[in-house]
């Protein structure tokens, strides 16, 4: 999988790595059982500190996306069914994101159109898996 670190982004580096792994999961680029690159490999390839990658992987582990492994970096977990507390937390965050759009003056159809585009991008996941595609 491809990692792109934006140096002028407001997001800290570890969060950018975490988000890219989650997005790759959502797109079906990586699947349950796949290994993420080891912490050292990713730090070396991006020329960043080992602790930054470790922090990102720890976060992914805490959130249940991967199982952190000393040897293999991280193994993607099988997330067929979201946990109840995840859905609640995610809904809260979604509420904040949508409220920002309304507060900025966007209309419901506009917001829904954007939501649809984003979900469209990620819904190809099943299609990818059927074809047996994978980035690793």
């Amino acid at each position: 999988m491809m990692f792109l670190i934006k140096w002028d982004s407001e997001q800290p580096l570890y969060l950018q790595i975490r988000n890219q792994v989650v997005e790759a999961l959502a797109r079906g680029d990586i699947r349950p059982g796949d290994s993420l690159p080891s912490i050292r490999t990713l730090a070396e390839e991006l020329a960043i500190n080992l602790h930054t990658v470790h922090k990102a992987y720890q976060l992914l582990d805490q959130e249940g996306y991967i199982r952190l492994s000393r040897r293999n970096g991280g193994i993607v977990r099988d997330l067929a069914h979201p946990a109840q507390d995840f859905v609640e937390g995610w809904r809260d965050r979604l509420s904040t994101v949508l409220s920002e759009a309304f507060a900025q003056g966007m209309t419901s159809p506009e917001i829904l159109q954007h939501c649809q585009q984003v979900t469209q991008e990620f819904s190809n996941k099943t299609h990818h898996q059927d074809e047996g595609e994978g980035v690793f």
């Binding site: 999988m1 990692f3 670190i5 934006k6 140096w7 960043i48």
Partner: peptide, 10 residues
């Protein structure tokens, strides 16, 4: 400019 680093491990 949007400065970035790219890695494609492996």
């Amino acid at each position: 400019r949007h400065q970035a680093s790219l890695a494609v491990p492996g």
